[in-house]
Write a protein that binds this DNA or RNA. Structure first.
Lengths: 227, 227
DNA sequence: ACATTTTGAGTAAAATTTACACAAAAAACT
DNA sequence: AGTTTTTTGTGTAAATTTTACTCAAAATGT
């Protein structure tokens, strides 16, 4: 039993985990709640922050425990603090945006209940998670301009059309194929790969890799990808 | 006495309050702590979030109580959760960025201890507030591209050189006078004022007002001021 | 009056963005 | 094997945006 002179809220972390594949586009990973409140509802993986860990650590721990994924990118994007957001007690949550390589949900204990939802097929969520998702998406859309986080969502070797689909899926727009490729190549972050991608329906496109070293060099200067 | 089955952190809000005037440029409002820990150190106004208010409300309340200012803009920009950031107990803070019309600190109770510090003369701060300040500044620099928040820092009627100084002060750069004016006028958010500004050392520049109505119309479309 | 400082105004060059068309490659079909 | 279908690769001209830059007039202080 822990006692305080003043009431303290509980603090949780929640992870909005994005994954991507060509078939379904941008998707979020949700977990079906097994307990009240909102039992049977879908929600973001997350849980109570421990008293001896910071929020970043807690978010990462919950993410791994509940989904088995290792995030390639993770970033705090806001605290959600509405007084009535949790019916049990006063709970505030610190929300994280994570990118993972989409795959079958491997799995920890609760993982059996985890499932990918394409962005346009997300059900109504538990707590205030609908709102959190909206904020996460807009943050992702901002970040994609400043950081090459998109590459975290693709396999190490990818084609230009794949990259374009990803960007279009995130930003909800359509780009001219040639202009998109020109801009991307201009950034100098891509290097052509010798391998040819297999599993192709038609003509085989050139494959590329993300040049991480080059990015590290550029990063200090600050850059922006404008579309 | 409040009891919980699990330990709960305390939650505070902190406000990084920016003000501006031509003499000192961009400044932050700090409060000298009267109690331990960090007694005598400077820190952001802030305090414990109440159990029956959300963080936004708490931040606004503390801001007014401790400084007497009414923010023209306020925005949450991050939760800071290092385990040892407060020596008393586990405390996480939700940080806010606020803009106010700079003036003598009017004053609530603690206001006597509040003071403006130009950005390049900020002392070493209490807790992890040095780090919070760095994040706040970079957030302010981002926001200035998307929203016309700069106008909140100026008097209702201002001159182009004043506006330019403000932007230069925030972004830490220098712009060509004519190109800056052209871009600003192009946005269509400024309207020339009939009044002439007084208190001028040399030739009297045209004065402008921010056209808020026009901004409200444009906002839905989303815009960006690039420099 | 004169010197000093600051504003107002416009253009040419450079860079970037946008729109757009056709030939070649690979697979699928007959 | 030839034909059809789909997708990739490539380049350029036009429009737009950004950047650099100069000189005359206005106001103040001496």
């Amino acid at each position: 039993m822990f006692k305080y002179d003043y009431p303290h809220p509980a603090v949780t972390t929640d992870c909005v985990i994005f994954g991507y594949d060509t078939r379904e586009g941008l998707s979020v990973l949700l977990i079906e709640r097994g307990i009240e409140p909102f039992r049977g509802c879908w929600a973001f993986p997350g849980g109570f922050m421990r008293i001896d860990e910071d929020a970043d650590t807690g978010a990462l721990r919950e993410l791994k425990e509940e989904t088995g994924f290792e995030p390639l990118y993770i970033e705090q994007f806001g605290a959600f603090t509405d007084v009535d957001r949790d019916p049990r007690e006063r709970v505030i949550t610190i929300a994280y945006l994570a990118l993972v390589k989409k795959g079958p949900v491997a799995g920890g204990d609760d993982a059996s209940k985890a499932k990918w939802f394409p962005l346009n097929a997300v059900p109504s969520l538990a707590f205030d998670h609908d709102r959190i998702l909206r904020v996460a998406i807009s943050r992702l859309r901002e970040q994609i301009h400043f950081r090459p986080i998109g590459f975290d969502l693709l396999p190490p070797v990818f084609t230009m059309p794949q990259l374009q689909s990803l960007y279009e899926s995130i930003l909800g727009t359509h780009f001219d194929r040639r202009n998109f490729a020109a801009k991307m190549l201009h950034l100098g972050l891509l290097e052509a790969d010798k391998e040819r991608s297999e599993n192709t329906p038609r003509r085989v496109p050139t494959t590329y890799r993300f040049n991480k070293d080059r990015y590290e060099e550029m990063k200090s200067g600050g850059f922006r990808i404008e579309f």
